[in-house]
């Protein structure tokens, strides 16, 4: 537990928070748009599981315009 207390949360939290925002924005866009290049479910997993890279991949490759 001492290890956990040593982690400087005040430094790490902003990073985690921003990544969470990025992930949520990607998910909102995905669900609202409904159209993707490739399977819809796959992109949900990519966004949720690949930290930081997942949302970027979705915005660049997964998003499809009508």
């Amino acid at each position: 537990m001492a290890e956990l207390a040593n982690i400087p949360w005040n430094l790490i939290l902003p990073i985690l928070g921003l990544q969470l925002i990025l992930m949520i924005v990607a998910l909102i866009d995905l669900i609202r748009n409904q159209r993707t290049n490739g399977p819809f479910i796959m992109w949900i997993f990519i966004i949720l599981l690949l930290n930081l890279v997942g949302p970027i991949l979705y915005f660049i490759f997964g998003r499809r315009q009508a």
Binding site: I15, L18, Q19, I21, L22, L52, I56
Partner: peptide, 9 residues
């Protein structure tokens, strides 16, 4: 939104 966010991260 996402491009500035990525650069900030």
């Amino acid at each position: 939104l996402w491009i500035p966010l990525v650069f900030i991260i």
